[in-house]
Design a protein around this nucleic acid. Structure first.
Lengths: 217, 217, 217, 217
DNA sequence: AATGAATGAGAATTCATTCAT
DNA sequence: TATGAATGAATTCTCATTCAT
């Protein structure tokens, strides 16, 4: 956690530092993110950064926490709009919508997470995992189990595999976004498409027969 | 391209150098790959590497080419087994099978490609792209167009989006493999699952009615 | 000297600061003692320390003075128990006893002195010497002269050399203690042994055997 | 151990680097010795030093080895002049003479060893000890045992304590020398004096006076 | 009187690249 | 053709000291 010093800073300065740090850590691996560059751009002394944070990892970790927190918040807000006993796919779409809200606010927040998942430094990844766990993975597994119980998902599915598939697919959306190949709008469209496909693949087989699942035309 | 010197090297030495270089470049970003480490492990002089290759990028680029070439070869071999006018999904599965053959031979070849797609150094990525283009993307778009013409894919699809979806999904498989979360066998199983879902999602809608696409049980 | 501010501090706080400072300065060279660590452990502000003391040296110097003062006190108390015209070796033993009392009270006080004698920073050592002089050395020389006059020491001795020898030997005891190789009790035993040897070596020759032991010269 | 690179250097350069390094490491603690200063004074690039040595410790350790080696050599040469079954005190004097020869050649070699014995960084000291052991201590203990068997030392002695005393006394000589308080000649005189005292203290009691000098119990 | 933010020099170490032999 | 020494900028992190509040 940042030192008290950091929180005593005028908000503008604090935000500026976080902003520049986000630039760094979202733009490459942990190793490649340069504190030197941050302080140079921020116009502060090298030592100052060390008054705010324990060390490089402390800053990185704090940033990750902020991003995760915000993402979770958005997801929860999107899900709050759903009724009780919500459909699995409705939840997934709400979660995705939350993710997209995050991206529209600041794409780097998403990139930060992606970078972490690809972090080449094993020690860094382990330290992160030790605190954050696999996060989404567990939540998702719970959703899937619930969805199967409620008859929203094919009972023949292997929950573990399904979770991997779903998680992987949503990571794809993230990465397509991060790569800048698609605009946010295009990505959202693609995500809807992907979700439709997923839904088609994961719904109970019998339940799909004789009906038109796709209303997008 | 490597200098002539490199090709004059005894094959064992040449392979050894490439092998160690693959270790480096598959294990992190371009920046993090260390020539120093390569020469140390290879037991050759720093200067020698510069007699074989222009610079770091030259070596990296050559490695990428080798991996791409081999992947393409495997895909082509897998596709050669298909009859004339092959089904789109059969082609996809063949391509995937080619990819898995690559992975079984050397997982680092796959990791190398993944790392490149995530390369944080813009200049590096651009130089790579300038020579390799989006590779798979164009081939895939052609397949999709063909598939739609032949009535194997839903005519209502947006080919570009579909290409992205398909590409993204196969990248997912790659990354799951690279992450080590799944064994190659598990990943292959998951890939089959994913392909089934994709097929379900992309086949012409009418064509699916009243038939059981899924024979896996 | 500390500023007035320091003496206005509640005693507990004052002692705590000195205690932590002793930890630092007894544990390494002047340079390695870290004010940052002191204030962190003391839970006071960096600036506060500079309100109490001029600078790092001021604190160090004050600490040295305190330790020296106490050591002198203990020595004097041990000597007060001796009768008038005390024997040189009785005085030495009393002095040593004083030193051991100091060590038993707080071994860091001894370590502090030893570190000073080994201080690598010439400027620091010189500033210390400028104020404290060689301390013990002069007192010791006086004792030796006195001892020779009173016939307690061999008149053939070179007083300067003898002083060095005696001082050096007692430093040995200090360092053995500081090194932690011996317990205080063991060290005290060793000191007695050493003193016995010294006594044997420095007593007037005639007093021992009626012959001149020295065949080297 | 230094890298091959170092040994391939022209001798003058190699010596110059070692000389400057000796300046650093003999002048303070491990931490205080500055590689930056060494390269600046040597007029070489920072990176070059790392071509010669693994890291700071490697350089330090190599220096220590050189000094130890030379000291041992001198001691052995001095002892070679002694006849068979040499007297314990003759051996001690020879050893001391070896030490003085070292000091006359380069006092920093002695200072280096002293600094090591006082090294505040525990980890450094441990790594050194792990390779060098206590060196002298063991050799000395053997001498003492031998001396007692041969009737050159008082059989009532505790060999451990005696070893400590002797070792400590010779360290004193070292430190007096290192401190610069005495010239080498004066120090050698003092050493002789000290040895005479020691001899007097450690010789068999009967051999001296036919009585037991020890009344301390 | 107390605070604690700011500073910048200095520390060890790694790296890709050049070039004389 | 191979070598490997030299380079210097880059990295993270620590420190004593100052000063406005």
């Amino acid at each position: 956690m940042p030192r008290e010093t950091f929180f005593n800073l005028p908000e503008a300065k604090r935000k500026r530092i976080l902003d520049l740090a986000l630039d760094e850590f979202a733009g490459g691996s942990y190793r490649e993110a340069s504190l030197t560059r941050i302080v140079k751009r921020a116009g502060i002394a090298k030592g100052s950064l060390y008054q705010y944070f324990e060390d490089k990892f402390d800053l990185y970790f704090y940033l990750l926490g902020l991003a995760g927190e915000r993402k979770l918040l958005y997801i929860q807000e999107a899900m709050a709009a759903l009724g009780p006993e919500p459909d699995f796919f409705a939840m997934m779409k709400a979660a995705m919508a939350g993710g997209f809200r995050l991206v529209r606010e600041d794409p780097r927040l998403l990139a930060l997470g992606n970078r972490m998942l690809q972090e080449p430094d094993l020690a860094v990844r382990q330290r992160v995992m030790a605190h954050f766990g696999s996060m989404g993975e567990e939540m998702l597994a719970a959703w899937i189990r619930q969805g199967m119980e409620r008859g929203q998902l094919d009972p023949g599915l292997n929950p573990g595999t399904a979770a991997h598939v779903v998680l992987a697919v949503s990571q794809v959306v993230s990465q397509v976004l991060a790569s800048g190949k698609l605009s946010v709008d295009q990505a959202e469209e693609m995500a809807a498409e992907v979700m439709a496909i997923l839904e088609h693949g994961l719904r109970p087989r019998g339940a799909r027969r004789g009906e038109n699942r796709r209303d997008r035309g």
